[in-house]
Design a binder for these strands. Structure first.
Length: 224
DNA sequence: GCGACAG
DNA sequence: ATCTTGTCGC
């Protein structure tokens, strides 16, 4: 069986980006939301071509989850994907899309990990610090940490631990379907992240904000 | 030294 | 992420 192979990343670049993450890490605040959200956003990026990135932001009413806005921005890909540094590749373009929203959300659900990262700076935390907005991440696969398989029924969850530290929760959003990984990003705590992820689930593996952002990314890609 | 590795 | 056909289960 083939295993994904990641091309060697430039040591100089990695050292610089790592320092940037360490600095940003000092700004992260894991606290509950000031108030129950009224608007929640979801975002996602796709790559129409290897050198083009298309980022989407969807805005949904909470807790009804009705779509109220959808925007996107297309830009150039600047750096290759390197595990642990995803934010440096996608955040710049995501910010451009975010600026196009007419209304701003109370909290943002990001596709990827929050603090469930080696240096606790996954893309959700990274975006949260840049925007100084409450964020949390919902990822489809593991990056860092260990966990016990949650029960096969929807709603089951189990802690995601790294060095004995709680960095996220593995949540089964749908019966017998692979779970998602939920972790706080910035200005959000684990309880809130998991609670919102559950409240945004509508019978699909992915919570609505992320699922719709994914869906619209596909639609917008065709409009090009 | 040998794996693991979000999107 | 992206490519890409069929196939299993409800």
């Amino acid at each position: 069986m083939y295993r994904p192979y990641h091309p060697p990343a430039d040591p100089m670049v990695v050292r610089d980006l790592t320092q940037q993450q360490e600095e940003m890490r000092t700004h992260v605040r894991l606290v509950p939301l000031a108030a129950e959200p009224t608007l929640i956003a979801g975002c996602d990026s796709s790559f129409p071509t290897p050198e083009t990135i298309l980022s989407v932001f969807v805005l949904l009413r909470y807790p009804s989850l009705e779509l109220v806005e959808k925007v996107y921005h297309v830009g150039p890909v600047t750096i290759p994907y390197v595990p642990g540094f995803l934010a440096f590749r996608e955040a710049p373009n995501l910010l451009k899309a975010y600026e196009k929203l007419q209304q701003k959300p109370d909290v943002i659900m990001v596709d990827g990990h929050g603090i469930a990262h080696k240096r606790r700076m996954g893309i959700a935390a990274h975006l949260g610090v840049l925007l100084d907005m409450p964020t949390f991440g919902v990822a489809k696969s593991l990056l860092t940490g260990r966990y016990e398989e949650p029960a096969p029924t929807a709603g089951s969850r189990s802690p995601l631990l790294d060095k004995g530290e709680l960095i996220g929760e593995v949540l089964r959003t749908k019966d017998k379907i692979l779970p998602v990984f939920v972790s706080p990003g910035h200005r959000c705590d684990q309880a809130t992240a998991t609670r919102l992820a559950v409240a945004c689930t509508r019978g699909y593996k992915l919570p609505e904000p992320t699922r719709l952002a994914d869906h619209w990314a596909e639609q917008f890609k065709k409009e090009l």
